[in-house]
Amino acid sequence: MAYSEKVIDHYNNPRNMGSFKKDEEGVGTGIVGAPECGDVMKLQIKVEEDTIVDAKFKTFGCGSAIASSSLATEWLKGKTVDEAGQIKNTEIVQELNLPPVKIHCSVLAEDAIKAALNDYKKKADTEGETEEAATPA
């Protein structure tokens, strides 16, 4: 498999590789894939006032999967939660010049973004609830 320059660059110099503490305030975590399928992606966002101020990833998968998640973290930073939900795997395919057999790696990245956003929203909701409950009426 011949890789595009951009995939190679992300592989050699992964952007925003690492982890946040899952229970940190404003952090949403998405883990998708399975070891048996040969790909697991962990994507995390850190949100302040509805804006993603930071993002991190860790990926077990081929070079295209690593590049897709690395690119996703770059794109996520600075976006609002709603804007982030608009990122499409086809944009990743285009940016990284992924061949057809590697499209599923970009789909996984889109799924990871969605999972991280959902996790953030769920946490924000329950945090909101507990805050409300804590405030005496």
């Binding site: 498999m1 890789y3 190679i8 592989y11 040969g38 790909d39 077990f60 998968g61 081929c62 070079g63 999967a65 690593i66």
Partner: peptide, 11 residues
């Protein structure tokens, strides 16, 4: 363990 073969080949 914990690394995917094709990614390793790429490295």
């Amino acid at each position: 363990a914990y690394v995917e073969g094709e990614a390793l080949l790429m490295g």
